[in-house]
Design a binder for these strands. Structure first.
Lengths: 355, 355
DNA sequence: TTGAAAGCGCTAACAA
DNA sequence: TTGTTAGCGCTTTCAA
């Protein structure tokens, strides 16, 4: 059985197709209630679903929005971002068309053409971690940048407020009474913009607390992993007891996990001997550490929503042309406490988990 | 400047729209090379991109496929599945329309209607973990079930081959010389189908190795988390030394992480005193444990591809109507070794990480 | 080898 | 209050 068309409904109801169209679209101001009922009944009885393709051709609006991103697969955050975008799209009666360009510029160009051909009503250009990107040629006006900002500006964009997040993290530590606070940073070839921003937040709070920043407390891991964090923390723990930090702010939760390992191997108890704050609120990391990690959450879901709402025109981007900085919520768990009364007294340098 | 239409190209090239259409679609058998060139040049010069909506209305094929799923956000595997689906779609010139129903049947019904209205060429119904589902009313024929199977059958489906995966996991242990092999299982209110299947695999390999299964070695955690795994492992380590397992197969990597913690607290070295195999190959868990966890990978990317290819008709589903069982690859890392010469001699019951 | 014309299913002027 | 008609941009017979 072929799909019912509007003319089938019209025939069944004994009215014209325009009347059916009017009723189906709620423009019923000038349609008698009796006719409306007849139309709706007829539509139901023939199982009518409007053909959005035909409607799109006629109205030039397709009620779809395109989301183009470089890597869906490789990040655990992608899901929350897509979910936010998808929820917002659905709430406004739109569908989300997803394209993963695998980071390939040719694929990207092709995807842009495909999406333009589909007449999407809006476009989102997403990265899977906070970056500055070169806007590709052929991006439609009004494209919204999600978790990235176009190098040359000119488009609405939303990114996490990493600097404020860094401030909040360090403030948590200052307020718990810490003065010797380290920053375990990431030193990759391409340093993520979040890394610099979080560091700025760190320095700002030290300044506002009147704490002289100690360069020796800014250490870097070579990779964004537990191993990287562990190596960086080892440098900290090798310092003389009176210079050692009582608290560590970590670039992210994965590195914080490494700091945990290093701390445990030195016999340091968290948070009794050492307080730790992470970043990202990465599921399966932050919550499963022992003790659960206090951290700053990345607002991926909210950014996904924001981008979609701006793309649909139901929300205005900042009028200064700057990216919108989405707040990163504080997630308090159990890795922060007051500093130890005296300097921490490690039980020794021996790893304890290999008896 | 409005988008160029096919008539603009025709005018610029001095030919009819039919000729342009033929050339743009590669049906050039009966078009002179000179005309072809003129058309292509004209198309490039006016920046023509075919309008897929108009084409879709005319041809009744939209080159889109709909993917409807219950929860994109809450699982770290979603990305790989979507990436597989998206890659396959792109390779065949199709676009992926994504809908997350948030597990709400009303949203699901609405999404089905929206996708039908969009005239998608194929439909995928995806779950984010291996389940048996009730096929909703209104699913188009030929809908492909991804990581789930319809209770009543009747649709092509692809799920991980959890039983074979369970066999492979346990075989790894048997081949390393183990005889006392435990299964740390999950005992949730709704037991995941994977749990039973992996257990069957476990029993099959024990049988083929002539090992009498010891019911005391089948323990359950109450939740799929490190905490659940840790509690289950504790039961195992509390057994008398001669009955204690020398190897543990875990329902998943998260629970294996808990088993690591429990083992370390008992002073058991992995893999010297205890070998462990996980399941899922969950990024940020399996690879970051110390030592890295040997595990069985869930083939999400491949399942995503498979489903899309079947939906597009470029691959045939099994003709017995059964779900296709996607093999789960073995990921060898460092958590499996030979059994200790004697029974393991724990250093004591004291937790060692809290000095 | 190319062009004319019809029509996919819908919406929106405009007419009645 | 409802119907007639044109046309969105494309593909595809069919005719030339």
């Amino acid at each position: 059985m072929a799909r019912a068309r509007i003319s089938d409904v019209a025939a069944a109801a004994g009215v014209s197709t325009s009347t059916v169209s009017l009723v189906m679209n709620g423009r019923v101001a000038r349609i008698s209630p009796a006719t409306q009922d007849r139309v709706r009944e007829a539509a139901a009885s023939v199982g009518y679903t409007p053909n959005s393709v035909a409607r799109g051709l006629r109205t030039q609006r397709t009620r779809t929005i395109g989301l183009i991103s470089d890597q869906i697969a490789t990040t655990p955050f992608a899901g929350r971002m897509l979910a936010g975008a998808q929820d917002a799209a659905r709430e406004h009666g739109h569908l989300l068309i997803l394209v993963d360009t695998v980071g390939d510029p040719d694929v990207e160009a092709e995807a842009l053409r495909a999406l333009a051909g589909q007449q999407v009503d809006g476009m989102i250009y997403a990265a899977m971690w906070h970056r500055v990107v070169q806007a590709p040629a052929g991006l439609p006006d009004g494209t919204v940048f999600l978790d990235c900002r176009p190098a040359a500006g000119g488009f609405p964009a939303v990114v996490p407020d990493d600097r404020a997040g860094g401030r909040d993290a360090v403030r948590l530590l200052v307020e718990a009474g810490h003065r010797r606070i380290a920053y375990v940073d990431l030193d990759e070839p391409e340093r993520p913009v979040a890394s610099g921003l979080r560091h700025e937040g760190y320095l700002e709070v030290l300044a506002e607390a009147g704490i002289e920043p100690d360069p020796a407390l800014h250490v870097c891991g070579a990779e964004s992993s537990a191993a990287g964090g562990r190596a960086a923390a080892a440098q900290l723990f090798d310092m003389p007891a009176d210079r050692r930090p009582t608290a560590i702010f970590c670039f992210n939760d994965r590195m914080a996990a490494g700091v945990y390992v290093a701390a445990h191997r030195r016999g340091l108890d968290i948070p009794r001997d050492l307080s730790i704050v992470g970043y990202d609120d990465q599921q399966l990391v932050a919550g499963e550490l022992d003790p659960p990690l206090t951290t700053i959450a990345l607002p991926h879901y909210e950014m996904g929503r924001w981008a979609t709402e701006v793309a649909l025109g139901v929300r205005e981007p900042p009028d200064d042309g700057q990216p919108y900085l989405m707040p990163c919520p504080i997630v308090r768990r159990d890795s922060v406490g007051p500093p130890p009364a005296a300097a921490p007294t490690p039980a020794g340098g021996e790893p304890l988990t290999t008896p």
